[in-house]
Simulated assay, not measured.
Amino acid sequence: MGESVRVDTWVWGVRLAKTRSQATAACRAGHVRVNGATAKAAQPVRLGDEVRVRLHGFDRVYRVTGLPLRRGSAAEAAKHFEDLTPPAPPRVERPAPVLRDRGAGRPTKRERRELDRLRGRDVES
């Protein structure tokens, strides 16, 4: 194993991006930072570096614990990083929707049929 690998190769190798070109595009777009600085695709990553990747609108923080030679299984990839991402804030529950009282507001289809029958506009016959 070498002492460093390209950051796009590392992001792809630990399965943070589906393809190597997606990893490279993420670096070009500024979504990958190494030790706090925006990383170009060819920037080397070494053991102990902190890699911050923006995935699906959220920043994920990883510490490099290994340098993969190739892309492997998810279990194999998990050996090459330590997830330092802080836990997400608790979700705020929204209040339950207010249901209308029966008879208030617009009549239901059943109520409209009954009204039509009362008014003599029976369509069934």
Rank of each mutant, 00 (worst) to 15 (best):
G36I: 01
R119T: 08
P68V: 08
A39D: 03
R110H: 10
E76M: 10
Q22G: 14
V11Y: 10
S73K: 03
T19Y: 04
S4F: 10
L67I: 04
A74K: 11
R119F: 00
L67R: 05
T85V: 12
V45W: 04
N35K: 03
A41T: 14
E111S: 12
V92M: 01
Q22L: 15
P86V: 01
V61T: 12
G105S: 07
R54M: 09
K18T: 07
F81G: 10
V5C: 03
M1P: 13
R6H: 01
G57D: 02
R63C: 02
Q43S: 13
H56Q: 15
R15K: 07
E93W: 13
G120Y: 02
E3D: 13
Y62V: 05
R110N: 01
P44C: 04
R119E: 15
A77S: 12
L47K: 08
G48S: 09
V51Y: 02
T24V: 14
E114D: 09
L67E: 03
A96L: 15
R6F: 03
K40I: 06
P89C: 10
L99P: 00
T65F: 02
R113A: 05
G57W: 00
G36F: 07
V34P: 08
R33W: 02
A26N: 10
T65M: 04
R110L: 09
A23Q: 06
A39I: 06
V123M: 00
E111D: 13
F81R: 15
D116N: 07
N35P: 03
A39T: 06
R52G: 02
V14R: 04
R71H: 05
A42L: 05
L67G: 05
R28I: 10
G66D: 02
V32N: 05
R112G: 00
K109W: 02
A37V: 13
V32D: 04
A96E: 14
A96N: 12
P87K: 11
T19G: 02
W10V: 00
T24Q: 15
A104Y: 09
E76A: 15
T19Q: 04
T19L: 12
R15G: 06
R121A: 00
